[in-house]
Amino acid sequence: MAIAGQQTSPQATQGAGEISWHGIVLQTLKRNEISLIPYVPDRVLTPLIKNLHADPFFTTFATAREEEAVGIVSGAWMGGRRGAVLMQTSGFATLANVLASLAVPYQIPLIMFVSERGTLGEYNYGQSLVCRTMRPVLDSLALEHHTITRLDELEFIADRSIKQAVTTQAPVALILNPLLTGGKTFDK
């Protein structure tokens, strides 16, 4: 099934040999030896999730809640295996407790990819409100976060941020903006 975002953004097209945002994310994860990928899905993340499942380097699986996924990658980190969590903005909104009581105080390099919904063409009022809670929560914990809007900056930001998270033992949120992914459009 075609992804709405792929129809609206030339940057997000997925073709053989073509550079796509999700291809860059997958390769950056692999290069940084991040192999455990629990997620709660988002429509925009679909091609990334599909390709992660198809690649045996990764252990990719859905969890029932985002905080469960945070617990899993935190445990894996302590056991010597790197992971990253994929989620939607609304999923991030469920995480304040686990960020403040586990990831930050225990100094765990939690790597989060957040598909941003609620802005640049949102049609669901609730989603747009949920989105507004995200950066204040991140800022209240002084948590590193970057909003990625451009394909040509994606690899640099993702690769550097992952390395910084690991070396400084601090969480990071990489927010995948609709300008990068195409987002989810009105007609869907």
């Binding site: 455990l36 252990t59 969890t63 905080e67 469960e68 996924a69 945070v70 617990g71 899993i72 990658v73 935190s74 445990g75 894996a76 980190w77 302590m78 056991g79 010597g80 295996r81 992971g83 407790n97 686990v98 403040a100 009581s101 586990l102 105080p105």
Partner: peptide
Amino acid sequence: NFYMLGSMGLAFPIALGVALAQPDR
């Protein structure tokens, strides 16, 4: 031993992560 000081409900998910990282333990 690992002791959780918050994150109510996450003992099993944390243990799952450890178990996936170290399958021989």
